[in-house]
Structure formats: structure tokens, C-alpha cells
Write a protein that binds this DNA or RNA. Structure first.
Lengths: 234, 234
DNA sequence: CAAAATAAGAAACTTAGGTTATCGCCTGAA
DNA sequence: TTCAGGCGATAACCTAAGTTTCTTATTTTG
């Protein structure tokens, strides 16, 4: 099966042990060495850092099918706060067992390394976006990316999907202010590119939206777990 | 020995095979599957992406002691252009041999995976910086980071080091314009924080500079090869 | 060594996006 | 059923950083 970058999918886990989190609860704290990584089944979360003066930057959104988070295996544990945006259902993958296998199963750890490199690549795409694109481009890119990730998990129907982010969340991810996110969304709506109301998103013209921000589907490849293997893991 | 994150240091390489690049030559092209990764012995390079309209974003500077670049092992090869800023001396590490070992030696691939996660972490620090810090903070952070990486390799003497970046290079990394880099450098000089002339940098007050941008040494940990193991590899 | 290219400095002007503030609408708790 | 707090919309105003242009230093190279 063609899922070379989802090294956890054949990892033993206990589906019966599904864990529920409510909205705005912490999946991880900075510095922690979590006992489990989470395979997200349902719900969204954000991983962010806070600066001393209160500024916040979200560097990743987690959604169904995502593994949260392989980089917790790194030496000093978690380097970000992870908080649920909606209620969440997740399957725990025991960290100790992963680490044991990491040191004994070269196929497993090799795939895990490649997964890390793929993630590095997706993240460096956002480095470019934050570094040199306009507010309109950044916001469009976020919408394109989230929409594609949802589509890859069969969570888009008829160009519509759930979209539980507040304008503040989008602002903290794209490096904008909520006011400017509001202005920019209005502009995207006026240009008949999207509809967004009551936490539901509809893409009216994906191609034009993608062209507007130079979105390339490719950088997501190998980054997202797809629907079938999620089922297999559970 | 405490170098958990430099998985290539015990990798066999042929020091006699040292390769020289002149300034402004390509170490890698996008999409390529390079035959070797480079352990940089001498000189600086930048890894960047170009947008269609000519905008450029540098997402990483390579300098002595760095491995350029483990992420080339990922499925689709190189995703960035890498160009030397100065003449470069580098030791080639054969990619095929690395890949073979990646699939057979769990200790090796495990360490490589962790190296990838550490790099992910360092990069997400820049995501935060580009996402929500001011021009002054971004430029100070770049200077702090490069200075620390050089210091870790014994390339700082008496608070002074080589600094071969043009203002355009710094601009393309920090998401500023060269004109604004010039203004901001002038300001840092006027505040007695740095001296910078003729490609030589002197840090006058590291602590104040680090405080100005919220620089945390920690995020570099495990990311840079240190001087002794470099020698060991060669 | 001179010519040519490249980089840096500086001033004047413009603009994208930040700031502050107000208002109305949902939503969820009591 | 109401009331409070969060969220979204909008407007007026402000500022950090971009743009353009020109001049002066450095490198590079022929």
C-alpha cells in the first residue's frame, strides 16, 4: 500500500482505549515527556508558542488523521503547547514502545526519519510563505492547505468542510491581526473564491484560489495520514 | 561521547576526497537526487526557494561543521537550491551508502530521525520569529544564531568572526528589504550592540542583543556539529 | 591598474497592515 | 429566558516597513 510516510500505521494500538478531550484542553505542555503520542481520529488542535509579552504563534494545526506529534520523540520532549480547538477523539500510541522499536527496527526508524524530513519540507514551505508573501496569499494558502488535508481524509463533501478556526487562530498562524484576517476574508468572499460562515467553509473556485497564493499540492505529500490506513491502525 | 544528534560523524568518508566549490556555485538543484551529502569544512552557503515572480526566501545558511543536507534523503530529493556564498571545502558522504545503512542499522537511523526532529524544532523557532517578531528582532536573532553556531565551532575570536552575508542575503532570510536591513543594522550599530564592516562582525554586547530578540540558545542544541567530531569524521 | 560590477548608505515618499474602538450577533451557562 | 462573554464586522486612524532614486564605497575581473 502506498503510504511510505506514515510509519505509525502498523504500530500496535488499542482502539478500545480511545481518549476524549474537550475543547480548549491541553494535549501537551512544553518540556513534558508525554507517555503517548496521539493519532487524532476526530477534532482539531493547534500547536503554538507564546512569547514573554503574550504574542502567540501557531506553527501547526492538527486534524483527523494526523499524528500528534512525532517530534515529541526528540531529546527534550515537547517544545510547544498543544491545545484542542474542538472536542477530540484520539488513539494513544505508547511512547516507550515507539522508542524501543525506534532502536531495534531499522525499517521503522528509517521510515520515521523520512517522515521527519517530509515534515521539515512542509514546514519550510511555510517559512517561505511567512517570509515573503502578502496577507492575502498567506491566508489563501492556509485555506488551500487545510482543505487539501481534509480532502485527503475524506472530510470534504461537495466542496464543503468543517472549519472550526476562529479569526484569531488564523491570525496567529499566518502572522496577521484578527482585524486584517477579517478584511482579507471579506475580500476572498467578494471575489467569489470562498464562503465561510458558522465554522463551515465552502471553496467556490479552488484553482483560482490556489493560483492566487502559488499553492503547490506537492509539499503536503507524505505528510498526512490517509483515511484507509487510519482505519487499519485502529 | 555527547554528540547524540550528529549521526554522520561515525560515517566512513574519504577526507582525501575533499571537494572545492567556488563562490556562487550550486551545491544542489531542486528535484535532484544528489549522489553525496556534504560535510562542510570551510565556507558558507544558502539554501533557498524562488517564487515565480522572482521573490526569494533563504530558509537556511550552511556553515563549517554543518551537514548539507540530511533532508536530501527524503523521497523526492532536494527541494531547494543550495548556492555557495563563499568558496567552500566539503567532504562528500555517499548517499547510497547512507541509505543502505539507514535501512539496516537501527541505531544509525534512529539517531538520524532524532536529528531530523531537532532540525524541525530549530526551524519552527524561525517560523515563530518570522510570524510575529519585528524587523529589529528578526535581524538580531539571525546575528545571535549565526554567532552562536560559529562559536560552537571555534570560529569566534575575541568576539569577532567572519560574516560573509550581504544585506540582500540577510533580507532574504529575515523577510525584509535590503534597504530596511541597512537601516536596522545602522540602528544596532548606533546602540553599541554590534560592529559590522567588510564582512567582519564583532558583537559588542551579546547579552543585550540576545535579550532584545528573545534569543534562546537552547533551540540550537543538537543541531550543530561541534568541532572535535568534525575532525573525527575526516 | 582601470573599468565594471556589486554592495552599502541615505533621503523622500508610499503603502500594507497594525491599532483602537464600537456595535451587533450568536452561544452557552444559570 | 436572559444575560455575559466571545466572536465577527466595520470604520478611522497610525506606523513599520516597502519603494524608488541617487550617491558613494568596495570588490572583482579583464
Amino acid at each position: 500500500m502506498p503510504f511510505p510516510s506514515a510509519p505509525f500505521l502498523d504500530f500496535p494500538s488499542d482502539a478500545a482505549a480511545t481518549v476524549h478531550f474537550r475543547s480548549r484542553s491541553f494535549l501537551a505542555h512544553r518540556g513534558e515527556r508525554p507517555s503517548a503520542l496521539w493519532l487524532i481520529e476526530e477534532g482539531w488542535a493547534s500547536g503554538y508558542k507564546l512569547l514573554r509579552d503574550g504574542r502567540r504563534h501557531i506553527s501547526r494545526f492538527y486534524m483527523p488523521g494526523d499524528l500528534c506529534d512525532p517530534s515529541w520523540l526528540a531529546a527534550d520532549g515537547v517544545d510547544q503547547l498543544v491545545v484542542s480547538i474542538t472536542p477530540i477523539k484520539a488513539i494513544p500510541l505508547d511512547r516507550m514502545r515507539i522508542e524501543a522499536r525506534l532502536h531495534s527496527d531499522p525499517a521503522f526508524s528509517g521510515r520515521l526519519a523520512l517522515e521527519g524530513f517530509a515534515r521539515l519540507r512542509a514546514q519550510s514551505e511555510w517559512l517561505v510563505t511567512l517570509g515573503c508573501k502578502s496577507a492575502t496569499e498567506r491566508l489563501s494558502q492556509l485555506i488551500c492547505e487545510l482543505f487539501c488535508r481534509l480532502a485527503a481524509n475524506g472530510r470534504v463533501e461537495d466542496d464543503r468542510c468543517d472549519f472550526p478556526l476562529s479569526q484569531q487562530d488564523m491570525a496567529d498562524f499566518t502572522g496577521m491581526t484578527p482585524v486584517h484576517v477579517c478584511r482579507t476574508l471579506k475580500e476572498l468572499k467578494e471575489h467569489q473564491l470562498i464562503e465561510l460562515r458558522r465554522r463551515r467553509l465552502r471553496i467556490l473556485d479552488f484553482d483560482r484560489l490556489a493560483k492566487l497564493c502559488g499553492f503547490e499540492h506537492a509539499y503536503l505529500a507524505g505528510e498526512t495520514c490517509q483515511s484507509p490506513p487510519l482505519a487499519a491502525a485502529a
